[in-house]
């Protein structure tokens, strides 16, 4: 008991000189602990980045162009990157791609033709059924929204290079009542 009291007294009397109280604080341990925590956070962030970019990510989809497959008010979809990276996309897949008109915007559309396919589309579905057929060039894809009346897609900007595709949306994860796979619709 007297030992503890003398330790405490030593702590408050400063242990012989000013700043003694601070000298007792284990700065070194605190520093290395903080460094360890920071490294852990960094590693976690890197892990999240790699998983998000190379395996599966999520994307928030908004807008009328993919009705009725995706909701108008916004769905959260899971996007897998493997199929795109391997180059094994097929017709009917829903993909997330960088818009060719604005690289900072990503859009969600359905692939209707791969390189070499001939695609027939209605020029303006609201005004009669004048159709046009185009051949998709090599290394490009033809993408269209499911809602042909309100979608800005390959009918306007032409086929897009495969390199703009960022992943295949395969599953809706939010809102809860919409959870389910995104199927092929042809």
């Amino acid at each position: 008991m007297s030992f503890v009291r003398s330790r405490i007294a030593g702590l408050f009397s400063g242990g012989g000189g000013g700043g003694g109280r601070f000298r007792k604080i284990p700065w070194r341990e605190i520093g290395s602990d903080a460094l360890d925590r920071a490294a852990l956070v960094l590693k976690a962030a890197c892990f999240v980045h790699v998983v998000n970019n190379y395996v599966v990510g999520i994307a928030f989809v908004l807008g009328p162009s993919m009705l009725p497959t995706l909701n108008l008010t916004g769905d959260v979809v899971a996007v897998e990157r493997i199929t795109t990276r391997w180059g094994s996309l097929s017709v009917g897949d829903v993909v997330v791609l960088q818009s060719p008109e604005n690289p900072r915007k990503t859009v969600t559309k359905r692939v209707l033709g791969l390189g070499g396919d001939a695609v027939t589309y209605l020029v303006d579905p609201a005004q009669g059924n004048a159709a046009r057929t185009v051949v998709v060039p090599k290394g490009h894809v033809w993408v269209q929204g499911d809602n042909i009346y309100s979608s800005r897609d390959s009918r306007e900007f032409g086929s897009v290079p495969y390199g703009l595709i960022q992943g295949r949306a395969f599953c809706k994860v939010w809102p809860p009542k919409a959870i389910g796979m995104i199927g092929e619709k042809l």
Partner: peptide, 8 residues
């Protein structure tokens, strides 16, 4: 940039 004809 990625080639527009071959994404690899």
């Amino acid at each position: 940039f990625k080639s527009p004809t071959n994404h690899r």
